[in-house]
Design a protein around this nucleic acid. Sequence first.
DNA 1: TGATTGTATTATAGATCATAACAATTATAC
DNA 2: GTATAATTGTTATGATCTATAATACAATCA
Lengths: 193, 193
Amino acid sequence: MRAIQKSPRVIAREQTRPPGSLPGKAPKVTPKFSALAEDEPDAGLGLALGPLPGYLGYPLRRAQIAVFEDFMLAAGSVGLRPGQFSTLVVIGANPGSKQTDVASALGIQGTNFVAMINQLEERGLVERRVFDRRTYALHLTDDGRKLMEAGVALQEAQEASYEEILGPGGRQILLGLLARLTAGLDARKAGRR
Amino acid sequence: MRAIQKSPRVIAREQTRPPGSLPGKAPKVTPKFSALAEDEPDAGLGLALGPLPGYLGYPLRRAQIAVFEDFMLAAGSVGLRPGQFSTLVVIGANPGSKQTDVASALGIQGTNFVAMINQLEERGLVERRVFDRRTYALHLTDDGRKLMEAGVALQEAQEASYEEILGPGGRQILLGLLARLTAGLDARKAGRR
DNA sequence: TGATTGTATTATAGATCATAACAATTATAC
DNA sequence: GTATAATTGTTATGATCTATAATACAATCA
């Protein structure tokens, strides 16, 4: 509780609070006067999320987190994070590419991509070869290719399990809708520019 | 290019590289020995993404980023980030809730939720009232409610535009598939535990 | 009473992401 | 052919987001 530790910051916050609202005794009886949970499944434990589940951003975010966690549980055994895995896949599909191109294909800022390649190179998975005097050509090492292929195998299994969850064809429909949404939003953004 | 700046780190990396591959002078004549485009770098601009677009995690991530950017462009005018907006919505739907419950409803770790509430409280959008001596009850201030409602109005407009992009019913189907996927993965994770 | 659990907090560290500045190279314009 | 611009990779920095560990205190229960 905040009032306990009395750090300066805490004290400052307390001082700005109307005195009437910080009595030691609280009305424990207070019935969640909201109880607006009339339209929520809610299951007693969780709170009502209001309109959030109907706003695409929220379920998208939750699904993305869930899938990433799932990936980490499965592919964590090969020691790859999602971003690293996709980097290996793209380099594997385009050997000799420049850092700039790989980064932009993945939607990663070039400036942040440097650290990623550094890590992968230090782990002996990726090689920087000279392309011209200002450019590197990226290649997978043998270890990198092995790890990438192991990740692909794991990922294929994951996709099969997603198909189980989503029913026959559901996964394909989801992929199509996601691609359409991303393309539409990217186009809108490009139009604004 | 890395060989240019010669920071200690750079030198260290170069030293660990097989001598044959680190000539100080780049073989300008060397016909980009890469060009190994075993499968062509394709399409001039974008690189091949290999199997990535067929793996749910990747399009999910891209879509989530695109939607979040879209939200920031629209709701940025009211100065709310997605996480802050959803926090306001949940508090508004459940006035008097404990921090713990709001955080877990949103899937945010309690320890990270503290900073979020600090910010919202400092901006005068959220109030911490005493619930009992170790617990705070969260409420929206008048300003907080106004901002939340403004965000909801903006978000409703966004959803309409998503429906345009996804075609009639497409948005609803997408919502359903995302919810099913998240629920399925959460159940699987819970089962593993 | 003493041990356990609940609630909020701080500190810390890692990953992610964006911006700015910079160095060297290459490409282009005049 | 030289001056200028655009590319390419890098570093540095700061803001977010996230996860873990440790702490302080309160409430509950055997």
